[in-house]
Simulated assay, not measured.
Amino acid sequence: MASNKEEVKLFGMMLSPFVTRVEIGLKLKGVGYKYELEKMGNLSEALINYNPVYKKVPVLVHNEKPVSESLIILEYIDETWKQNPILPSDPYKKALAHFWSKFIDDKFLSAIKKAIFTIDEKERENGIEETEVALQFLENEIKDKFFGGEDIGFVDISAVLIAYWLPIVQEVVGLNLFTHEKFPKLYKWSQDFTNHPIVKETLPSRETLLPYFKARYETFLASK
């Protein structure tokens, strides 16, 4: 637990899977924190001062020391508060956890953005194909209940945008990418993960996310 001498603040925004990553990490560790809500397009001076390079959330501030970028923050949390580790101690397994988390942010995210927010039909089809390839790699990687074994770990937290955000987004767009039939192990993992008590209490409500993405997608369609 964070001691009384520690000050932990999280600068975040509603509906961000990257902020949710950090919240899950803190809650799994039992670390108390103060949430500083930022508004899109109207960032606070404090946030910009703490993260002048990227000027975006999430930013974790621990005893006035800011840490930016969700995966880096997760690693910082794990190294600072030793209870309930989320990264393996074995160097090779730790390296693999970093690899797959980076894969999610690089390969999966770029593919799904192309599949949804691309005007050119050929490019959109390529994005759908690349998304399915990325999901298949992750399907093949799951060996236990979670990527981290029997307990939630670094890759599971990194993949929250697949477990929770992807089903909502594909419903809005009308895609059929992530299903139990196509990816049975990954789909079961997503159910186990999102129903974990700590994860479940941290996720934004579906009733909030769905209209947000509907409005965003309608704006995109109107601009075509």
Rank of each mutant, 00 (worst) to 15 (best):
E36Y: 01
E139P: 05
A95Y: 14
T208D: 13
K39F: 00
G30I: 02
Q136R: 02
E123R: 02
N63K: 00
L26C: 04
L96T: 11
E38N: 05
L71T: 08
S3L: 03
K27D: 01
E7I: 05
L166N: 09
L10V: 12
G153S: 07
S205T: 15
L87K: 11
E75A: 06
I168W: 12
V57F: 02
P91D: 09
L47R: 00
L37E: 13
E123H: 01
L186V: 00
E125Y: 06
I77Q: 04
L221C: 05
K114I: 04
I86M: 08
L203S: 10
E218K: 12
K56F: 11
P88A: 06
Y164R: 15
L210K: 13
F117R: 08
L43A: 02
V61I: 02
L15A: 10
L138A: 01
P167I: 03
N140M: 01
E64H: 00
Y187K: 11
D192V: 06
D78L: 04
E181I: 00
V173C: 10
P91C: 09
A215S: 10
G148I: 11
P211H: 11
G30C: 08
Q170K: 06
N84P: 03
K143N: 07
V67R: 01
T20S: 09
K5R: 00
K27I: 11
K39G: 04
D144H: 03
T80N: 06
S89F: 01
G25E: 10
L96M: 15
V59P: 06
D106A: 10
A97C: 13
G153D: 00
V199D: 07
